[in-house]
């Protein structure tokens, strides 16, 4: 698939979700292609698997401060620490963004299945999704905070019968 199409879909979905559900300003940054490394992450990650004629994985990554802002805006209640409610809100945000990309992809790729989101908060964690060779990283700036949407898609023939890719996360 053409990267520019996927980038456009991710940007449109993210901007729409931020505008409609959160009323928070967001600005897209330059896209990167990143090979999975052993570098650890800090913050919140929402993992959303995809399956069907293409398989893949989407993930939303942000820091604890932006996760709290997202939850506060979504629920109209101030959150200053990453709680169960904050993780739920970030998971739902990831679900909406990746879900909307998935819906748009279906017009060219056929029916796709969206898995349930998994959300993790921690320090120096490593997230590895099976089959991912390279992530497409679409960054956004929400005032002083950074948000990244990562996506990996591959033809289902690469794997068995379009089962959603699974992710493994470990902490040091």
């Amino acid at each position: 698939m053409d990267d520019s199409v996927l980038v456009r879909l991710i940007r449109e979905a993210t901007e729409s979700v931020f505008s409609v559900m959160l009323d928070l300003p967001i600005e897209a940054g330059p896209v990167e292609r990143v090979v999975p490394t052993s570098d650890g992450y800090d913050g919140v990650i929402a993992l959303v698997p995809l399956g069907g004629t293409i398989i893949g994985s989407g993930r939303l990554i942000c820091g604890a401060r932006l996760a709290c802002r997202i939850s506060s805006a979504m629920l109209m209640a101030e959150h200053t620490a990453v709680t169960e409610e904050v993780l739920d809100a970030v998971g739902e945000l990831g679900n909406m963004i990746i879900g909307n990309v998935k819906t748009e992809l279906e017009s060219t790729e056929g029916p796709l299945a969206l898995g349930l989101p998994t959300v993790i908060f921690g320090r120096n964690y490593h997230a590895r999704s099976s089959a991912v060779r390279e992530w497409l990283v679409v960054p956004f700036q929400c005032e002083e905070d950074r948000l990244e949407i990562h996506m990996f898609l591959a033809p289902a023939a690469d794997r068995q019968a379009g089962k959603p890719a699974h992710a493994v996360v470990h902490f040091d």
Binding site: M96, T103, E106
Partner: peptide
């Protein structure tokens, strides 16, 4: 979040009154 035509049709056929996309 499911906005694909297939899911919308399935829901309507099963008797959904309305459909709103997230």
């Amino acid at each position: 979040t499911e906005g694909g035509q297939e899911k919308v049709m399935q829901a309507i056929q099963l008797g959904a009154t309305g459909y709103i996309r997230k």
